[in-house]
């Protein structure tokens, strides 16, 4: 089995594998999103407390989880890349970042739009909202570092180091923001008391989380293929592909 894994560590084979996987993930993400939306809008009952506004959680919670999860996956690929110097893992980390930033932005946007009806303010300095704002800054920082460095080899390693030191700090940032938040506003405003999760709501949310997850994989695979072509353009298999797509 291990030989097979290393076979796909070579960019050429991974390019083909990714090409075959993308349609699967894309389609399953589309179907799951449709199911999730149907559950969210047509099956989930109205919440007695918040009326219809709570339906935003079917978007907000998956986006928030995905932004955190993608950052951890990037940290994993960075560690693997630094340890074994496999360029492909650096490329995966680069491909994931934009999608992670999109999810971080979406979790902020939907958080604000959910906060307005619930607490009457567009922006609430709640612990999770604030730390996903900082997570968004981390994404922007890493992507700007990558774009500032022309040499791909140095860019990979520098980005990986920044991702790692960021990953060490994310839990500390979350803890310090939570500490800071409870000190100032006390626990009156508290997002942890999510509305009592009827089974349907939980199911709807989980479907949306998987939809977001498959979407993230499909998007990053498309991006990583582009990066592979860019990096391997001197090789003859890329030359064939370029002719093939004449």
């Amino acid at each position: 089995m291990s030989i097979a894994i290393f076979k796909y560590a070579a960019p050429m084979n991974f390019y083909g594998l990714a090409g075959r996987l993308i349609p699967w993930f894309a389609w399953s993400s589309g179907i799951l999103t449709a199911i999730g939306l149907y559950l969210a809008f047509f099956v989930a009952p109205t919440d007695f407390q918040q009326g219809e506004a709570y339906r935003v959680i079917f978007l907000h919670v998956p986006a928030a989880w995905m932004s955190m999860f993608i950052y951890m996956v990037m940290a994993f690929w960075s560690a693997v890349g630094l340890a074994w110097n496999t360029r492909l893992s650096f490329m995966m980390s680069r491909a994931l970042a934009p999608t992670g930033a999109v999810f971080a932005f979406l979790s902020l946007w939907t958080g604000a739009l959910w906060g307005k009806p619930m607490w009457g303010a567009w922006w609430v300095w709640d612990a999770r909202l604030t730390s996903s704002l900082i997570l968004f800054f981390l994404y922007v920082g890493i992507m700007s570092l990558w774009s500032a460095i022309d040499d791909p080899r140095r860019g990979d390693k520098a980005g990986a180091l920044l991702t790692l030191i960021g990953a060490i700090n994310v839990p500390i940032i979350y803890f310090s923001v939570k500490w800071w938040n409870t000190l100032h506003q006390g626990s009156t405003i508290n997002m942890t008391k999510a509305p009592s999760m009827a089974a349907i709501m939980l199911a709807g949310m989980l479907v949306m989380v998987f939809a977001a997850w498959f979407y993230a994989i499909a998007a990053s695979l498309v991006r990583v293929r582009g990066i592979i072509l860019e990096r391997e353009r001197q090789t003859e298999w890329v030359a064939e592909i370029l002719e093939g797509k004449a």
């Binding site: 009326g51 219809e52 339906r55 935003v56 986006a63 979406l106 939907t110 739009l113 009806p117």
Partner: peptide
């Protein structure tokens, strides 16, 4: 949406637009 239409469709609409932009930019980028 029980009077909360602005907020619900505001967030779903924004999500739809952002994801659409990302998909288009992926295609064009490639």
């Amino acid at each position: 949406m029980g009077g909360y239409g602005l907020y619900v469709w505001g967030s779903y609409g924004a999500a739809f637009i952002v994801i659409l932009i990302e998909i288009i930019s992926l295609g064009r980028g490639h």
